[in-house]
């Protein structure tokens, strides 16, 4: 069974201006997929639809056979592009919160990752830098044994030195029966970890998709170079 099935997804923010116009995708298990496209092509909208933050105007979506809702949310680990915790909370309180609400949350793994990233669990979130907050969020998301990870710009706010560690963390910490969808503009950085890629054009059209390694071998170009070619202004 595919981890994610989308069929004819249409989403308009304003009438007659669809951000996604009939997008259909199937994501099998055990893949790391790069969802790549220019600004405003609907990447984040698609991720929000899968996460259950938005409702499609039409079309169907299911995660491991469950329509988007309470059950699918228990299977998805979502990293939004912005920090979503109140500044007054301590890191260990956030870990407690995740332990409370997600049955698949691995507390030990979270503390280990925090230690690796030299983040003190006693720290209050408001005292942390933007990049460190993003690291904390990524630690929380990757400490779950979810079936689908949705990572919206996971390395945009962190320094280049930490990016490698974070990407390593993503690759080494996800459940092999799960899949990861990563949206980013930093293609060069993430390219090395991607199994598959999807180039999303305006209106949510799939312009190119396939296996990252095969595409590189056939075209003789990196995904980054290919992206620049496809989306040249």
């Amino acid at each position: 069974m595919n981890v994610l099935e989308c069929n004819g997804i249409v989403k308009c923010y304003k009438k007659y201006v669809p951000v996604l116009n009939g997008l259909s995708l199937s994501i099998p298990a055990g893949r790391i997929i790069g969802l790549l496209g220019p600004n405003g092509c609907g990447k984040s909208t698609f991720i929000k639809l899968v996460a259950g933050l938005l409702q499609p105007d039409s079309g169907e979506m299911s995660v491991c056979g469950n329509p988007v809702g309470e059950k699918s949310k228990a299977l998805i680990s979502y990293l939004p592009e912005r920090p979503y915790f109140g500044g007054g909370m301590r890191v260990k309180e956030i870990i407690h919160y995740f332990t409370d609400f997600y049955g698949d949350f691995d507390k030990q793994r979270a503390y280990k990752l925090l230690a690796d990233l030299q983040i003190n669990p006693e720290s209050k979130l408001k005292t942390l830098s933007k990049g460190t907050k993003e690291k904390v969020q990524l630690v929380l998301v990757m400490s779950r044994n979810a079936r689908l990870y949705l990572l919206d710009e996971p390395i945009a706010g962190v320094d280049p030195a930490a990016r490698e560690y974070i990407l390593g963390t993503i690759v080494s910490n996800y459940n092999p029966e799960a899949s990861i969808i990563i949206t980013t503009h930093l293609i060069t950085d993430v390219e090395q970890v991607l199994d598959d890629y999807i180039f999303l054009g305006f209106g949510g059209q799939v312009l190119m998709a396939g296996n990252a390694e095969d595409t590189r071998n056939q075209s003789g170009k990196s995904l980054d170079a290919l992206f620049k070619e496809v989306f040249r202004c």
């Binding site: 059950k71 979502y78 979503y84 915790f85 997600y102």
Partner: peptide
């Protein structure tokens, strides 16, 4: 973003 992605 957290509240509405909780399995609730």
């Amino acid at each position: 973003y957290l509240t509405f992605t909780l399995p609730v």
